[in-house]
Design a protein around this nucleic acid. Structure first.
Lengths: 247, 247
DNA sequence: CGTTTCAATATGTATATACATAATCGTCAT
DNA sequence: ATGACGATTATGTATATACATATTGAAACG
């Protein structure tokens, strides 16, 4: 076969061979076709399947291993690892992406929507801002199970357009990003016992531990939004990986 | 030169050649010796410098490019990119400082210390490393109240000196920093209900929610330590503030 | 003077090959 | 049974080589 060969995808995109192998396998894993624990084909089998050299297969597999999707064991083979919801703590995380990374269908459902003049608590949450606010409560689903409860406060003085949006099945997070350039954010992460209401909403036992992530966002010194995500403890682990700067 | 050669570091650790090149360059960049915009040596120069093949150099550089530390341009060379870090939110936090910031007297007390050959669980926690480990359990106090329980595993192959340290009232965290330059860290944050033992140690009710922060640290690709901090929910909130810096 | 062409160059991707290393399995002796 | 040991196997890392591709800079041309 000719060297440095490239492949045409259905959509006409050109991918290098090792990238094609990589995305083929990743797709198999993310779609659930290859469940956690499943042994993926040996290098020599993939070599035959893709009609390429072992080096090329090895490069793809090493990359998947480095990304944490698979685990490689000498003499035994390569195995699909347990999925790890990798919410980037430090990024504006999109719950849809987290859920879909688990291979589950995502859905958002609004529970409550209220426009009001900011009260004392609202001001304290948003950080020193008066004026009208939009209060939203919604539930993120992974499949049929509640994945996270979201309680959000939007500063309408900063994002007036939000008052015309119903947020019935669009989550406010993705809606806000792109519309409002944020310049600063603060996260607070803590553990909490679910009270009656929350337990009922999330379909867990009262008193069960929950992970609470609160985020305040500013745009040019103006508070934009305060959001509180409440995750049942079992459903969620935040993972953040750093290199002093990246590497 | 012989194939599959490995190099001895000062400390006696073995690194693959491409990892050595990788960390050499990363160090140059992170230390500031090579400022953003600086052109790093061509592949053929590094090939000569390390007396290895271009493939090996290429692998290291591709990895750095993928990680975003450098940018590669055909015909022009490879250049150090503008740093685009996401503020290290969950920086190696020092519990002493947290406690003293609350205006309370700080104290550390060792509960358990055990040297042992790493078992399967140890290896999985540390991430694929065999060899002897040091297991430590200790309690951080704020005033008279337990503030956090620490369970730590130190890879003695990486930090041999630790085996001579008793850690009776010095917490291993501060001891390790300064002795071992970390190059990578991973945090996992979750909520958990306290079991009997933990509840007893922390002087809280069984079943009460706790915040669990686990951190794995690597130095030059070698696992150094795994630590688990367990905080009673009331005592602790992680706060992370950052601004986007986009490069 | 501007544009087109072309060679040089650094990186990108693939090949085949070689040997190292870790884990597992079967064999054989105890 | 059980433990020691060597063969086997899959991955890990390195080599040398080959050709592709993007970009630059200089030469050739209108």
């Amino acid at each position: 076969m000719s060297m440095a060969e490239t492949a045409e995808m259905e959509d006409g995109e050109t991918l290098s061979l090792h990238q094609r192998i990589l995305s083929d396998i990743r797709e198999k894993i993310l779609s659930g076709a290859w469940a956690p624990g499943h042994r993926i084909p040996f290098e020599h089998e993939l070599t035959a399947q893709y009609d390429c050299s072992r080096m090329t297969v090895n490069k793809a597999l090493s990359q998947l291993a480095k990304a944490g999707l698979i685990e490689r064991r000498r003499r035994s083979g390569s195995f699909v690892r347990q999925p790890q919801s990798q919410a980037a703590v430090l990024e504006l995380h999109d719950i849809r992406i987290e859920v879909e990374a688990l291979g589950l269908p995502y859905r958002y459902e609004r529970l409550e929507r209220m426009k009001r003049r900011g009260n004392a608590e609202d001001r304290s949450l948003l950080g020193l801002s008066a004026g009208p606010v939009l209060w939203l409560e919604g539930l993120h689903f992974a499949g049929e199970r509640p994945f996270a409860l979201e309680q959000r406060l939007i500063n309408l003085s900063a994002v007036g357009e939000a008052s015309e949006e119903e947020f019935l099945d669009i989550a406010p997070g993705p809606w806000l990003i792109g519309r409002v350039p944020w310049s600063e954010a603060e996260h607070r992460i803590r553990a909490m016992a679910a009270d009656e209401t929350i337990a009922d909403t999330l379909d867990i036992d009262p008193g069960a531990p929950c992970l609470v992530v609160e985020r305040r966002t500013w745009s040019a010194e103006h508070p934009v939004t305060h959001v509180r995500f409440i995750y049942p403890a079992e459903s969620h682990t935040l993972v953040a990986r750093f290199t002093p700067s990246q590497g």
